[in-house]
Design a protein around this nucleic acid. Structure first.
Lengths: 201, 201
DNA sequence: TCATAATACGAACGATCGTGCTATTGTACG
DNA sequence: CGTACAATAGCACGATCGTTCGTATTATGA
């Protein structure tokens, strides 16, 4: 999963630990991730795992950062190959929808939002920063589609980003609670309707 | 909070326990609710609290049911006083938005969705049933607005309910992560635009 | 190859978890 | 008023939690 091989042995196992931790936390949440279970999953001792992070919170922060990075590499980066404007916006949303479908246990970041949205601390701030960044990235993509004339000139980019976010959230919930296929269809219909409502005259 | 006074003493304290548990679980989640903390919050012994529920899971189920009931009494019931059609749909959405605003620690049900959306068990099924019911209630309200001619005849009620749900989810997140006031404005704008897109010609 | 630092282990700590068991208290009814 | 039963407390249990510490192992750089 790591693009660049780690120089030292410790950094390599650290990445392995985070990998497993990410897989566990996708289903159990960052708060449901215990060092004991994680140690067993990587085949190490509890203290051996712990030594790589000064505290449980630091472990959670590392896993959360890893999740954000995975999301970026899986959704944002590929979409950047599409030309600026509506094509790139579509690529972002498509990649996002695929991400929701492929992370069958649930998106770690969206789970972390629920866990830390009203609990002060380092994790809360990190979650806010992650969502903030993703929201502004989305808004920027919308803005480019406005600049290229593919969306109506008066369109509010942040408002549109808000609504896209809502569609993704509803898709995420319905995918896990109900029928994933139908949820995807509804999400795409909602997005297309959103674009149509903001098309240039 | 209880409309009908409990006949026996035990049922009364049971309600009190659930009340406190609800308040705690709104912020900590149903999974973060511990019997020890709850006992301290109600001023009872751990075993005294425990005796009212055969297990922790039964306690969580009771709290979840209580949350669903609160939501219904706070959002759905008042909206039923509005005449069928668009007025009632607006009342539902308004009440929903108010609910999101007033539960400053977070909506317990929405938190429970994240906690149990991909973890099999009794709580998962209860969450699915809760959301299912609320979704179909919303769709029914949309359907009445179609029947009354206030929404376009071809409108897909379930699709619209899906999109309204998405707006509420985005509102919920933004309310806790960013600025509640601005989130409310964006949510209302999104809803109005949704109605406009489905208005009769 | 050897010294040294990095890495991992094992055991143990105090705390807290959910959950039984046994008294003891309180309430309610004949 | 007294009896029966519901309700609560107290205590202890095994398990697991995050964390610390001392020691053994292993990798790294001169």
């Amino acid at each position: 999963m790591s693009a660049v091989p780690a120089t030292t042995k410790g950094a390599a196992t650290r990445e392995l630990i985070i990998d497993r931790a990410y897989a566990i936390a996708c289903g159990e949440g960052l708060e449901g991730l215990s060092i004991g279970d994680l140690a067993q999953a990587v085949g190490m001792s509890k203290s051996g795992v712990f030594a790589h992070f000064g505290s449980r919170e630091d472990l959670q922060l590392a896993v959360l950062d890893s999740a954000g990075q995975r999301f970026g590499e899986s959704v944002l980066i590929p979409a950047l190959r599409a030309p600026r404007g509506l094509a790139r916006l579509r690529a972002i949303v498509d990649g996002w929808f695929d991400w929701v479908r492929d992370n069958r246990q649930g998106c770690l970041v969206m789970g972390a939002v629920s866990e830390y949205d009203s609990r002060p601390g380092a994790l809360h701030e990190r979650v806010v920063a992650l969502i903030q960044r993703w929201r502004s990235d989305s808004a920027r993509a919308v803005g480019m589609a406005i600049d290229s004339g593919e969306l109506r000139a008066g369109t509010d980019a942040h408002q549109l980003a808000f609504e896209i976010f809502g569609i993704a959230l509803a898709l995420h919930q319905d995918t896990r609670l109900f029928d994933p296929k139908q949820a995807r269809v509804q999400a795409e219909r909602a997005f297309e309707r959103l674009l149509a409502a903001n098309s240039p005259p």
